[in-house]
Design a protein around this nucleic acid. Structure first.
Length: 569
RNA sequence: CGGGAUGUAGCGCAGCUUGGUAGCGCACCUCGCUUGGGACGAGGGGGUCGCAGGUUCAAAUCCUGUCAUCCCGACCA
């Protein structure tokens, strides 16, 4: 490709409306252009990167025995009504009607479609297991799209689905996909950490996420991990042991005390000269329009996803102060489960289990009770957010927290879709059984963005060779010097003939412009044909290391060809 | 949906307080000059100032509404 013909416009300045470095660089280097909030055009350079990531995934998945297909982007509401998700999915599902008033939606995921396809084709246990995948546009009407391609409303996803006759068979495929995913991200030069996670709207029991760890805000998930064993989990799923599991106070007798205008746990602890972990905190939520009170140790926070799952709920929010008054008759700061257990659903977090002689509200303004103990059995559930420094549930060493970008995930769905959709096969005994399913996703456009988040410097993108739009750029420093121009063209043509993806910067611009653009766009290798051309030498620069060496044209060609051949394995 | 901010040329911005013929830098076009890290000179093209009302002799500027975008919280690949 000639640079003079390449459809790209690089910008002098970073775009004002971008925050994430990958977003800034993709816009500035001319990879993407925004059409609407969270919706981007993929320009030729971006399209090439996407194709590279897809091809790596395709190769590894095919090797792992999966088969590629392609399903429709627009889906009938009928399917979603069958699975029950038409009501459940909420506003993220973009719905519409066609000219006949038939309800449709844009596919945010494809469990329903694949299940209906497979149900029509696979009828016997002899045909299972099977694993099918596609690369597809997805549309999710996100509450808050941001960070460019990291969280767009429209994005490209690799989604795969497997069908089985038994849990054992699913387990095997789950591990198979786990391995394939590791290899895919390795080949993209992305180090990932596999973490346990909540399965969210997709559903199912077992699920793992592949996280690219980052220090910045662009990693939108908190990941807790142990340095001594392989425990790692998303904050919405992480669990821990407390360092101070048993807590008690000097108050050995139940007593009501005045706590005037003391509304926060911190104030209360100071006022009564106890620790925050001596206070049993009451937090009031509204889950699917019904009040729910969570009793949790004062130094801990409620993890709302866990609470929602415990109740099999759909929608959760904290109660407002007015609602709290109405429900408890008291004021925020003095809430309690005492006397409320018949009226309101009360749940206990496991952090409260070993509290003795604790402090608790009594639903009376400006009063608390001290020296309280549990008088009857409660179920203590895991409803709390883990904090850094708490102990690993496996090996009791301290847990650490970091940020992560979720680039892929795998789920065991079980019969969550096949049962309501009545998708069955016939087993050895002639019985109809619902398919046992797994599902496996990779955010292709997100993976490309994550690669930039991890690989860039102040000059621009530093693509790993495997997913760079081109392997190499050839820069004739001065197009007026025929010696340089001719040598550059020879090298360019030679690389082309060897299957190297190469751009020649044939523009009349000065060298500085070409160098800046080469760095910004992120070509992994640059061959500069300049002053040393008359001595039969060119400059060979590796973007990743900044290393520059003088080589003969043939040596430079050989070096790149070798690197490219390594990719092909 | 709640909190904060912004909409003026492809990109980055000034002008708005105190209404009076729409400007700067980059990019783009022409000519000259230059050619190893975003040169220089001269000339040129491009904007219904987000949109709709209102106030006024006169609105980018003041008022009202509306739409869009971005940032901080609840979603997820």
């Amino acid at each position: 490709m000639k640079m003079s013909k390449l459809f790209v416009q690089t910008l002098r300045d970073f775009p004002q409306d971008a925050e994430a470095i990958s977003h800034k660089l993709l816009v500035r280097a001319g990879y993407i252009k925004k059409l609407a909030n969270g919706i981007y055009s993929y320009l030729p350079l971006m399209k090439r990167v996407i194709s590279k990531v897809e091809q790596i995934a395709r190769e590894e998945l095919n090797k792992a025995g999966a088969q590629e297909l392609s399903m429709p982007f627009v889906q009938p509401a009928e399917l979603w009504q069958k699975s029950g998700r038409w009501q459940v999915y909420g506003k993220e599902l973009l719905r519409m009607k066609d000219r006949h008033d038939v309800e449709l939606c844009l596919g945010p995921t494809h469990e329903e479609v694949i299940t209906s396809i497979v149900d029509g084709i696979l009828t016997s246990y002899k045909q299972l297991p099977v694993n099918l995948y596609q690369f597809q546009l997805k549309f999710r009407d996100e509450i808050r799209p941001r960070f460019g391609l990291l969280r767009g409303r429209e994005f490209i996803m690799k989604d795969g689905y497997s069908f089985h006759t038994s849990q054992e068979s699913l387990d095997i495929e789950y591990k198979n996909m786990w391995g394939a995913y590791k290899r895919i991200f390795d080949r993209c030069n992305l180090e990932t950490k596999v973490v346990q996670s909540d399965s969210g709207a997709i559903g199912g029991k077992v699920s793992h996420e592949f996280m690219v760890l980052t220090e910045t805000q662009t990693g939108e998930d908190d990941v807790f991990y142990c340095k001594h064993c392989d425990y790692a989990a998303n904050s919405n799923h992480a669990t821990s042991k407390l360092k101070d599991e048993i807590t008690t106070t000097r108050f050995t007798k139940e007593e009501i005390v005045d706590t005037p205008n003391i509304r926060t746990i911190k104030e209360l602890a100071q006022f009564l000269k106890v620790e925050e972990n001596n206070i049993l905190k009451s937090v009031l939520y509204i889950v699917d329009s019904k009040p729910v009170m969570v009793m949790i140790r004062g130094d801990k926070e409620v993890e709302e996803t866990k609470l929602l799952n415990a109740l099999c709920g759909l929608e959760i929010r904290k109660a407002t102060e007015d609602e709290a008054k109405e429900i408890t008759g008291s004021e925020v700061g003095f809430l309690s489960c005492i006397g409320l257990e018949d009226k309101v659903k009360v749940l206990f977090d496991k952090s409260a289990k070993n509290m003795k002689n604790f402090v608790i509200g009594i639903n009376q303004p400006h009063k608390h009770m001290v020296g309280k103990n549990f008088t009857k059995e409660h179920d203590f559930l895991d409803l709390s957010l883990v904090k850094e420094g708490e102990l690993c549930p496996h090996c009791s060493n301290p847990l650490y927290v970091t940020r992560g970008i979720e680039v892929g995930n795998i789920f065991q769905l079980g019969t969550k879709y096949s049962e309501p959709m009545n998708a069955t096969y016939t087993d050895e005994n002639g019985q109809n059984k619902p398919f046992i399913m797994g599902c496996y996703g990779i955010g292709i456009t997100r993976t490309a963005s994550a690669a930039i988040e991890k690989h860039h410097d102040e000059n621009g993108i530093i693509w790993p060779l495997a997913i760079a739009p081109y392997h190499c750029v050839v820069v004739p420093v001065n197009m007026q010097e025929s010696e340089q121009k001719d040598m550059a063209e020879k090298i360019y043509n030679s690389l082309l003939s060897k299957g190297v993806e190469v751009v020649i910067d044939d523009r009349e611009d000065r060298a500085g412009v070409k160098f800046k653009d080469a760095d910004l766009i992120g070509f992994p290798y640059r061959i500069t044909v300049g002053k040393t051309a008359k001595d039969g030498l060119v400059e060979f620069k590796t973007r990743m290391t900044g290393e520059t060496v003088l080589l003969s044209p043939n040596e430079a060609i050989k070096k790149i060809t070798e690197e490219v051949d390594k990719l092909k394995g």
